[in-house]
Design a protein around this nucleic acid. Structure first.
Length: 244
DNA sequence: ACATTAATTATGT
DNA sequence: ACATAATTAATGT
């Protein structure tokens, strides 16, 4: 379960290096922190749900969060992953009063949150907040743009390869023989990111393991050869008509 | 070029 | 021991 304590006192360094708060005085940051609720979440815990009234917005201080939606038929679709230092649940920033998607922790997480009414206050009062937030929204839109094109035009192996590449880009941790995705991730998760089945992902992974591109065990994936994976990701192997 | 179904095995508490 | 994750083969579209 997640505990909901406002622990002793939040240190100002938690915020002072984040783009949204970088320009602010120590006192401003103090005020912001004093209004925050700090909460720890276990892995695989829902932070907020699609369609629910967007009462609070969050700043992820540690861990990783999945943003997802569930189709009418009960199929999960993962939209993107969020890493620490990022705001989530900022429905207000896109003019919505309900959360547009569900946020679920992918690992143990620590997050601050504020009532949504403060979003407008922050935007008005604190230099750089709305600007940097808008940039973050833009980056996510960008990612989803490329993903839409990917999902609707590329073959599975490329989709999965590119999903993996984004994951190590956003949450890669250097390990002995490559770079590991920094949170537990299953074949099923990958398939929900790539619009395919866990079986296909499984087959791809064993093939890529044989080729030394990845190494995986239960809920762990290490990319040993990002270059080769990137080739799989963008090499266009749609059949060209033979010359002559 | 894939998904689906089903059976089997591996792995973590 | 039990649940969940991963593999594998067979079959379907």
């Amino acid at each position: 379960m997640g505990s909901s304590k406002t622990l002793p006192r939040l240190d100002e360094s938690l915020l002072s290096y984040l783009p949204q708060f970088m320009r602010l005085s120590r006192q401003d940051i103090r005020d912001i922190l004093d209004q925050a609720v700090s909460r720890r979440f276990d892995a695989d815990t829902v932070i907020f749900e699609e369609g629910a009234p967007a009462e609070r917005f969050y700043l992820l201080l540690d861990g990783y969060v999945r943003v997802l939606r569930i189709t009418k038929e009960g199929k999960r679709v993962i939209l993107l992953h969020i890493q620490s230092g990022q705001l989530i649940g900022i429905a207000r920033a896109i003019g919505r009063t309900e959360y547009p998607a569900t946020a679920m922790t992918a690992s143990e997480c620590l997050a601050l949150s504020w009532p949504m009414s403060l979003f407008d206050v922050f935007a008005e009062k604190y230099d750089g907040f709305i600007n940097e937030t808008q940039k973050a929204v833009g980056r996510r839109m960008n990612e989803m743009n490329t993903r839409i094109v990917e999902l609707s035009s590329q073959h599975v192996d490329r989709r999965v390869a590119n999903a993996l590449l984004r994951l190590i880009d956003q949450s890669g941790r250097e390990v002995g023989d490559g770079v590991e995705i920094d949170f537990p991730i299953t074949r099923k998760d990958l398939s929900e990111l790539s619009a395919t089945t866990l079986h296909t992902v499984s087959r791809l992974m064993t093939a890529w393991e044989r080729d030394g591109i990845v190494k995986s065990s239960r809920q762990r994936i290490v990319v040993r050869n990002p270059r080769k994976l990137a080739e799989l990701g963008h090499v266009d192997k749609t059949k060209q008509p033979p010359i002559r």
